[in-house]
Nucleic acid binder design. Structure first.
Length: 807
RNA sequence: GCGGGUGUGGCGGAAUUGGCAGACGCGCUAGAUUUAGGAUCUAGUGUUUCCAACGUGGGGGUUCGAGUCCCUUCACCCGCACCA
């Protein structure tokens, strides 16, 4: 009987469901292992081959750990709020909830067809009011702690569509849908003060077992820089000051001009009448530029002189104040002291506008370029002769003593723009009262449900479609009779995914986000696997919320995800990213139908390292299927019975026994560190060996099938039952190897002359250096090779080699 | 430009602390078998001028010995984008 994957896979998937094989027990006394996949967004397009890669990796870990005696938490759920459902609703008038439900059903069916060992009783859905109740609850905690505030910030407003667009919906300043112009318009938005946690988000990265690249990306994103704030007085304006931020306060003596960002609010006050038209013109030019043009590094510097002068506090010199778009209003204080001698950008600007360049750190050639390195300070008064570090410290002391500046840390990280002008998101539980005050929806009234509506349409005002739903919007506080209007903004998609891993731990809890005892039992996540595209935002937001919850005593750990692994992308057969337009998309459903889920799982793990980008190969997937067929033929007869190669008490050669124990060792070790490709290679090697045997003992057949089972669970269950077991292989114990069987008594040693292999010797393990040397020099072949030469040196490494250096 | 990463056969990829380069798979070749097929089994398969030499993007170095360490250079991928 051939290996019929359709029948077998369906059978075991039903068995697992019926027997609740993968149910997680909170009260077991086994050690815990929490292995988590990144929350999928159930798009209408369904699963692509990238999904099963990460999911298979975590599933292998989950299945192996269960067999190794761990209580495993391996859940899945749906990050189901999001733009596509809303757009679908706007286009068709249908309820996004229905659309989402269908998509989830499709996704679930696809995921189930791959045989992942999820505990489906813990399935989550961010759009479920019982779930988003707690998303809203967390928001209220943030609000109470002063970490949620509202502010006027510019958004992408499309007047023609009457709506606000996300950045990705704006292409070249036009709306993606319809090509209407989009303008930046300040609107009141909810912000979360993630910057208050910047230092902790940065520092706690050190203890995480994450890829360096991801940690580095987060560090860069947070962008902490240490320097000083310096206040410059403005000539002729006694009450005005400009504060600049600099990382190089030691170069203050070299500040020969000052630059304000074109949006800086002081400009109108200080600009001289003669310069006003030039400044206005420049600001108009800058405003007309797209973000892309403004940030184009290749362009030359532009700017305009305001006519005003600032006073350099350290030497009292007058320096001209310019405006230029190379200074960003969003960073630091939106103003800089320009030190053209020691900053590339300032140098470029000064050269273009003929501003003076003064050397204050020796070591460079200022006629050619700015010198940004370290060196002795010159032309710097009390700093002369000092190096960079001492000079910075001394200058900060001076600034503090003269009350014109201080040490200062700034971050690139901005506060999190938390509101979206959307219907399909968690409602923000805030009421704007008619007296202008804000009132939080009482916790006991949560969840604040999204109102059902027949027709979702833009409000036209920039508010979300919720603004149309008068019944929902207008509220009266019962105690006071005061009227109010609900917040029409909803939360971004990041909200629900910032804490879902906590809810899996206690998904049906009505009283709390999750039981503290259970959180203590399960946190933190031992292994988190997902795509690198979430390297910054999702992982940073989740860490931020987690720290807030930690401070509130809700969660027991400082960090949510102890170990993080990014699966690499699966490319098309042409080594390019899969895309519809390139026609190189592989649909996992097709593979499951043609080759089976086990084959797909096996192949995706065998393709290469989990974190590398790897191209798909048609013949490669065939090869993986062939391996499973080979296993099947080995263990199962054409009548569907257990093959006679398996004999309970078969004796095998010492060599084969060794191969078995080596396989157990290598597979166990490789899977543990997620080197699935090499572990699978070892399984293949073992099967190649088995093909050379007449009989193998049942114990080894069972051991092998156990090793295979996390990767290819369906075929493994089937063979396991043919081996005479009436319980799932999942309930069996992971095999252990006998180290004694791996001990080599004799090993082959290579003998090199000048690093080239000239002979091989079989010696007892542990043969001493001297002995090896003697044996090597006594070897006939070696003697012959050395006949014309004189020996300079002999290096002998026990159990490895002898290298003879000769001339 | 800055930060991170990757370069190994025809292809995907293996290779502890520096110690037999190319495990395993694909592809290819040959043989066997068969109801002749995109099946199966067995063997072979880095290159070349094949008793040997060369070979891990290029160049240089350290070392008895380098895919692995150091310097330099090139190519590609990912992230950031004038962050003062």
């Amino acid at each position: 009987m051939a290996f019929d994957h359709r029948k077998i896979e369906a059978r075991w998937q039903n068995y697992w469901d019926d027997h609740q094989t993968f149910k997680t027990h909170d009260d077991s006394d086994k050690p815990k292992y929490y292995v988590l996949d990144m929350f999928p967004y159930p798009s209408g397009k369904g699963l692509h081959v990238g999904h099963p890669e990460g999911y298979t990796a975590t599933d292998i870990m989950a299945r192996m750990k269960r067999m190794q005696g761990f209580e495993v938490l391996h859940p899945i759920g749906w990050d189901a709020f999001g733009l596509p459902a809303e757009q679908y609703a706007l286009d068709t008038g249908h309820d996004p909830a229905d659309f989402t439900e269908q998509n989830i059903a499709t996704f679930k069916k696809q995921i189930k067809s791959l045989g992942f060992s999820y505990d489906w009783d813990r399935e989550l859905n961010t759009t479920d009011p019982e779930y988003y109740k707690w998303t809203q609850w967390i928001f209220l905690q943030l609000y109470k702690k002063g970490l949620a505030y509202s502010a006027e910030v510019p958004v992408n407003w499309c007047p023609a569509l009457g709506t606000v667009l996300a950045n990705e919906e704006v292409i070249d300043g036009k709306s993606e849908r319809g090509g209407h112009p989009v303008i930046r318009k300040p609107m009141r938005q909810w912000m979360l003060k993630i910057t208050a946690y910047a230092d902790r988000l940065l520092d706690d990265l050190d203890d995480l077992d994450w890829p360096d690249s991801i940690k580095e990306m987060q560090r860069n994103w947070i962008g902490r820089s240490v320097g000083a704030e310096v206040q410059f007085a403005i000539d002729g304006f006694e009450n005005e000051k400009v504060t600049v931020f600099t990382t190089r306060p030691d170069t203050l003596f070299g500040a020969t001009y000052m630059v304000l960002a074109p949006e800086h609010k002081l400009i109108d006050k200080i600009v001289t009448p003669e310069q006003k038209s030039a400044v206005d013109q420049y600001r108009a030019d800058v405003a007309a530029k797209s973000d892309l043009e403004r940030t184009d590094l290749a362009k030359t510097k532009t700017g305009a002189f305001t006519g005003a002068y600032a006073i350099n506090p350290v030497n009292g010199k007058k320096v001209p104040i310019w405006i230029a778009d190379y200074v960003l209003i969003t960073y630091g204080s939106g103003a800089i002291m320009a030190v053209p001698g020691h900053d590339d950008r300032d140098y470029e600007f000064a050269t273009k506008f003929n501003l003076p360049i003064v050397e204050v750190v020796a070591g460079g050639d200022l006629s050619k370029e700015a010198y940004t390195g370290d060196g002795k300070h010159v032309n710097s008064g009390f700093l002369d002769g000092l190096g960079k570090q001492e000079a910075i410290a001394k200058m900060i002391d001076w600034l503090v003593a003269h009350k014109v500046g201080s040490r200062k840390v700034t971050y690139r990280l901005r506060d999190w723009l938390f509101s979206r002008q959307r219907y399909w998101g968690e409602p923000i539980p805030i009421i704007h009262m008619e007296d202008g005050s804000l009132k939080a929806v009482p916790e006991e009234e949560l969840p604040l449900r999204l109102p059902k509506t027949k027709n979702i349409k833009p409000s036209g005002t920039g508010e979300s479609p919720l603004a149309n739903i008068t019944d929902w919007i207008e509220v009266t506080v019962p105690e006071t009779g005061m009227k109010g209007r609900r917040e029409t903004n909803t939360m971004p998609q990041w909200a629900g995914s910032s804490w879902y891993f906590l809810r899996y731990i206690d998904p049906h809890n009505k009283e709390k986000l999750a039981d503290p005892e259970k959180l203590k039992r399960w946190m933190s996540v031992d292994l988190y696997v997902g795509g690198a595209e979430h390297a910054v935002l999702h992982l940073l937001y989740a860490r931020f919320w987690h720290k807030v919850l930690y401070d509130l005593g809700v969660v027991p750990t400082k960090e949510p995800f102890q170990k993080l692994v990014n699966q690499g992308m699966i490319l098309g057969t042409n080594h390019e990213k899969m895309s519809k337009s390139k026609g190189n998309v592989i649909n996992p459903d097709d593979i499951v139908a043609s080759h089976g889920a086990d084959t797909l799982r096996l192949y995706e793990m065998f393709m290469g390292p989990i974190d590398a980008a790897k191209p798909w190969s048609e013949t490669g997937i065939d090869g993986s299927r062939r391996f499973l067929d080979r296993i099947w033929r080995l263990f199962v007869t054409s009548e569907g019975k257990l093959s006679e190669i398996v004999a309970p008490n078969a004796t095998v050669s010492e060599e084969f026994e060794k191969a078995y124990h080596q396989t157990v060792k290598k597979v166990s070790e490789d899977f543990e560190i997620m080197h699935f490709n090499t572990g699978i290679a070892q399984l293949m090697t073992f099967i190649n060996e088995v093909y050379k045997q007449d009989k193998i003992p049942a114990s080894m057949a069972e051991g092998f099938i156990k090793l295979l089972s996390p990767v290819a669970p369906h075929i493994s269950e089937e063979i396991w039952s043919l081996l005479g077991h009436d319980q799932s292989i999942e309930k069996s114990m992971w095999p252990v190897y006998d180290a004694n069987k791996l001990v080599e008594e004799q090993i082959e040693i290579i003998v090199q002359i000048n690093g080239k292999i000239r002979a091989r010797l079989n010696v007892d393990k542990g043969t001493s250096r001297d002995e090896l040397e003697k044996m090597a020099l006594g070897d006939e072949q070696i003697k012959a090779q050395l006949a014309e030469k004189s020996i300079k040196k002999v290096i002998a490494v026990p159990d490895k080699l002898v290298n003879i250096v000769a001339k």
